[in-house]
Amino acid sequence: MSGPGTDRDAGLQPERTRLAWRRTTLASSVVAVLALRQALRGSGSSTEVAGAAVIVLIWLVFLWVAHRRIRALATGRPPGLAPRSALAVVGCTVALAVFAMAVIL
């Protein structure tokens, strides 16, 4: 039933957690696209390009953290989530909100 060396959890907890990370990256991608749309509404001035670059950077950080966590969860008995990763994800979300406020004003 289980592969050699792995004690697979019958409740599939690591898999569910991995999918939760996937859903979260999907949600962050949607928000990043909306943010890009907001940033590049005007004539394409250098400020707008810089704003778009910041958003792409935030999105990449989000993807990178999620990717690392998804890989860690692929092991049979994964370690707990590092507070630093949790903070990075929260930081990206707050950064997007702050960016939005700055652009709207």
């Binding site: 979260t24 949600a27 909306l34 749309r37 907001q38 929260v90 979300t93 997007l96 909100a97």
Partner: peptide, 12 residues
């Protein structure tokens, strides 16, 4: 976090 992202997306 997804709830937060949805709210931020709603703001946009």
């Amino acid at each position: 976090i997804r709830t937060a992202l949805a709210l931020v997306g709603g703001g946009f």
